[in-house]
Design a protein around this nucleic acid. Structure first.
Lengths: 137, 137
DNA sequence: GTTTATGCAAATTCTTTGCAATACT
DNA sequence: AGTATTGCAAAGAATTTGCATAAAC
């Protein structure tokens, strides 16, 4: 289990407070987080803009990935360690609870192959399941 | 095949130019459209706000549904006729092309059941496949 | 010392709200 | 006539950009 420091180092990113704290957040909460979520939690410790730029950098370095959401807010989740290991796993299954609004990655669930029409080439698949989560039942 | 007029009537919505034209757009282009897409096509024929409100109304009446997208823009697609017939089909498969950026509904493809962990209850499923579409190959 | 990240201000874009005028039934 | 929809103005989110300061390497 890598630490925030190790994660930054292995991605050749400069070590800064903001980056360390945001990675820690993703590791602690195991849910998808939006910019607003982070801003709330970090409670003005860092500038709004810095958080945006940190997320952008992490996205570019494949440290986090976008999580689909129909609420309009862009959410991000930490890329799991399996993904880091062998390049990238472009199959994501997420579950969003309609009550608590939390989105979690269902990492153990693998997506079956989808038979695409002729001429279509798949690069990435994202499945979003919405419903009621275990905690809210 | 229902006309825009018939569609509005069957949903007990008032017949207005903006609504007719937007439904026609959805029927013509068979792709998911964002507010900006509509604004561009309708080229200032209707106010920005009116388009927002029309989309909201159509969403509430289940005439259109949100299409997941990781670009930040909210996209909408017309609900197919099958859906209208028996309430609502909450399983959507969409394909988004990374080149032309178009998103189409793959209506014929059905989603396999996903085995969720205990305590999770599924209400809706959305699969977004990204890659290269037939036209862009 | 050089490069990169941060904070602040401000600009853009996206979306919603209030209200009077207009169109629909 | 009565109710719902539209357009305009303006407010409110969400996100991006520029630039000087500060921190990382």
């Amino acid at each position: 289990m890598a630490t925030p420091l190790q994660i930054l180092q292995s991605h050749r990113l400069r070590i800064t407070d903001c980056r360390l704290v945001i990675i820690q957040e993703f590791l602690d909460k195991n849910v998808a987080l939006s910019h607003a979520d982070l801003e709330d939690t970090l409670n003005n410790k860092f500038d709004r803009v810095t958080i945006y730029r940190t997320l952008k950098t992490f996205l570019e370095k494949d440290l986090i990935h976008k999580v689909l959401d129909d609420s309009g807010a862009t959410k991000y989740a930490f890329c799991s360690h399996g993904e880091e290991a062998h390049g990238h796993n472009h199959e994501h299954v997420h579950f969003k609870c309609e009550k608590c609004e939390e989105t979690i990655c269902l990492e153990d669930i693998s997506l079956p192959a989808i038979p695409l029409p002729k001429g279509f080439e798949k690069k990435e698949m994202n499945l979003l399941v919405q419903g009621i989560c275990e905690k809210c039942h």
